[in-house]
Design a protein around this nucleic acid. Structure first.
Lengths: 233, 233
DNA sequence: CAGTGGTCTAGACCACACA
DNA sequence: GTGTGGTCTAGACCACTGC
C-alpha cells in the first residue's frame, strides 16, 4: 500500500469516516490512539490530530484525554446557517432589493425589552420599523430596538435611506449574538405590510447582539409568505 | 511586553479580534501576513495560522493565497444549530419523553417524493407516522419516508416501540443532509395530533439525508405550539 | 501516576493567484 | 515569477483525567 504521495489530513479524515460507516469502528467503541494511527497511515501525529480534531468538532467522535477517542453513538450533528444581510439574501435570489423606512422613535426601554436584553431602568433605545422588498414584493418586516448608550451617534443617522441592519453591520461590531426562530401568526398591522391575511403563519427570526457584555440591539424579523431557511451539512 | 508564558493560538485570536473591534484593522483592510504577526507575537507561524484559520472559518476574515488576509466588510456570520434526537431535545428540557406510533405502510414512492430526494420509478419506500410527547403534551409530529433499497432490514423493524428517528440514527449512517425550516399552518388532521386549532401556525422542519449519493430518508417534523429554535454564536 | 489528547516549535515544501 | 497562505514533519512539553 506504498504510495509516493504524502498523506493529507483529509485522507485520514475520509479513511476514518469510511471505517466508521463500515462499522470497523462501531458506535461507542474505542478507536486507536493518535500515535498508533499515525504509524499505520505513515504520517505525523499532528496530521492525525487535525483530522480527528475536525471530526470531533463535527460531532462524529468524542475525545477525552487519557480515556481516548470513541465513535459517538448518537452523533449530535451540527447544521451551519449563514446569517447574511437581508440585502444579500435577496440579491442572492437574483431579485432586486428595495428598502422602505416606516417609523422611528426614541424612548425609554420598555420593561419587556429591558428584561430581554439586559438594560437599566433609564436606558434609552432607538426604535425603528422598516420593510425589505424583493422585486417589490414584501420580503421581510424588521422591528428593531437599538441601545442608544452603545452607539450615541445612532441618533444622527438618517434611517430613511439606509436600513438599520446595514448600518449596524458596517459600524458596530458585536462579540456575541443569540438568534432564535419560530412560527407565529401575523397580526392585522403586520398583515398589511407583508400583504398577508391576518392570522396567516409567518417565519419569525429574533436576534439579540452584545459587544463584550453591553447589549447592542434586539430585532424581530418577520418573513413573508413561503419563506424557507435551508442548509446542507 | 515580555512574558514567560507561551503564546497560545487563543491569545492570538483574541488579540486579532480586539484589533478588529477597535478598528486598528478596519473592515476591508489588509492585515499583516502570518510571518509578520508571528514575529510580533513571538510565536511560531503555525500558531498564528491556526488562529487565523479559525477566524476565517467563523467568517470574520477572508484569506487568499498571494492576496493576503482581509477583515470581512459584512461578516457573514455562521450560526451553528445542534440537530439532536427528539428524545434528547425533550429530555434536555427536563421533560419526560414518550413515543407513540401512528401508522406504517410500504408503497412505491409517490412522484413528489421521487422528485424531492431522487428515487427511481419503481423504488419502494416505507412510510411511518408517529408522535413525540414531552410530559404527555404533544411535542412533535413526525412524517417519515425511508428508501427501502437503502436498508432492506427496515421492513423487519418493529416501529411500534422504537421511533424511526432513533433507529436510523443508530443503524444507518449518512454522509450528507439537507435541512430546512419554515412556518406553515396545521391542517385538520395535524391539528388533532398536536392539540392545536386548524390553521394555527406551526414550526416545520424538513430533512433529507443521503449516504454517498444514495437517498436514505425524507422527514417532515411538525412542532407543537410555541416551539423555538435557539442558538448563540 | 501514567496515558492520552492538546498545543507549540522550527523548518520545509507546495499550490494557488496575482502581477 | 513570486509572495502568501496551506499543509506536513519530527520532536517536545503540557494538561487533564481515569485508574
Amino acid at each position: 500500500m506504498l504510495s509516493g504521495e504524502k498523506i493529507s489530513y483529509r485522507d485520514v479524515k475520509n479513511e476514518i469516516l469510511n471505517r466508521i460507516h463500515n462499522r470497523i469502528w462501531a458506535p461507542g467503541s474505542l478507536m486507536p490512539g493518535e500515535i498508533e494511527l499515525a504509524e499505520e497511515f505513515g504520517c505525523a501525529r499532528a496530521t492525525v490530530n487535525r483530522a480527528m480534531r475536525e471530526l470531533a468538532e463535527e460531532g462524529i467522535i468524542d475525545r477525552k484525554r487519557k480515556a481516548g477517542t470513541r465513535v459517538n453513538i448518537a452523533p449530535v450533528r451540527h447544521a451551519k446557517f449563514e446569517i447574511p444581510l437581508v440585502r444579500s439574501e435577496i440579491e442572492a435570489l437574483g431579485a432586486t432589493y428595495r428598502y422602505a423606512f416606516i417609523s422611528r422613535s426614541v424612548e425609554v426601554a420598555p420593561d419587556w425589552l429591558r428584561a430581554q436584553i439586559g438594560l437599566g431602568d433609564e436606558d434609552k433605545v432607538l426604535h425603528i420599523e422598516c420593510m425589505h422588498y424583493a422585486n417589490n414584493a414584501p420580503f421581510q418586516f424588521e422591528d428593531r430596538w437599538i441601545n442608544v448608550a452603545a452607539a450615541p451617534q445612532i441618533l444622527d443617522v438618517d434611517f430613511s435611506t439606509i436600513s438599520p441592519n446595514e448600518w449596524l453591520v458596517s459600524e458596530l461590531p458585536f462579540s456575541d449574538a443569540e438568534i432564535s426562530f419560530s412560527a407565529s401568526a401575523v397580526d392585522e398591522r403586520l398583515a398589511r405590510f407583508l400583504s398577508m391575511y391576518k392570522g396567516e403563519p409567518h417565519f419569525l427570526s429574533e436576534r439579540v447582539t452584545w459587544l463584550k457584555g453591553m447589549p447592542i440591539t434586539f430585532a424581530q424579523m418577520s418573513y413573508g409568505r413561503g419563506y424557507r431557511m435551508t442548509t446542507r451539512y
